[in-house]
Design a protein around this nucleic acid. Sequence first.
DNA 1: GCCAGGATCGTC
DNA 2: ACGATCCTGGCA
Length: 204
Amino acid sequence: MRLKKKFFEQNTLRVARELLGKTLVRKWRGKELRGVITETEAYRGFSDKASHACLSGRQAYLSGRQVSRGITPRTALMFGEAGRAYVYLIYGIHHCLNIVTEKNGYPAAVLIRSIWLSDSQMTINGPGRICKFLHIDKTLNGEDIIKSRKLWIESNLAAQRPNKILRGPRIGIDYAGEWKDKPWRFYLAIGQPNRIKRKNKMLS
DNA sequence: GCCAGGATCGTC
DNA sequence: ACGATCCTGGCA
C-alpha cells in the first residue's frame, strides 16, 4: 500500500527510521523498478548545519567563503509540503533523492542512501548509484510521491518492521560542526559496504 | 558574469 | 587520496 502524506508529515527522524523496510518504486518506460529501503538520513530544521536548508549557514563561513544555504530556489522544496521528492545534483555528476517531511514551513527531508533489490538479491549502495539505477534526475524534482505515477513508496503487508535498526552519524558532512555527530543516519545490517561495517565494529 | 564548493563515486 | 563535472548562489 502506498504511503500517504500523513506518514511524511511526522518527525523526520521517525520518518527516516520507519522508511527502512519500505519499498521505493520507480516506474520507468513501463517497468516498475523496486527496491527495499535499507539506509536513510534525516536532515532537519532551521539550524541543522548539514542541511541545505540551514538558515545560519548563510552567515557561516566554510573555508573563508559563504555557502549556499537557507531558503533559495533550489531548497525551497524542503520548506514546503511533505511527500515531495527533492532531487539535486551533487559534484556535477550524481543525483540524490530526498523525500520532504514535516509541516509546510518547516525545512526537513530524508535522504535515501541504500536500497535492496530482492529480485536480484543485491544492494544499490549510495544516493548517486540509486538515482542512476532508478533513472531519477531533476525531472523528478518536486514530484508528489503521494500521487505520482512515476515514483512512490509502498509499505509491505508482510514483513512489516525490520528486526534490527542501526543508527549513526551522517555521511559526508564533516563541515557541519556540532551537527556532524548527530546519529541521524538509520540503516539495516543488510547491504552495508564493508568499510562501513568495519567502522561500526571499531565503534562498538 | 565569475567562481568556489558540494548530503558522491570510481579509480589509483 | 584524488579527480570528475556542473549546478548553485553570493558577490561584483
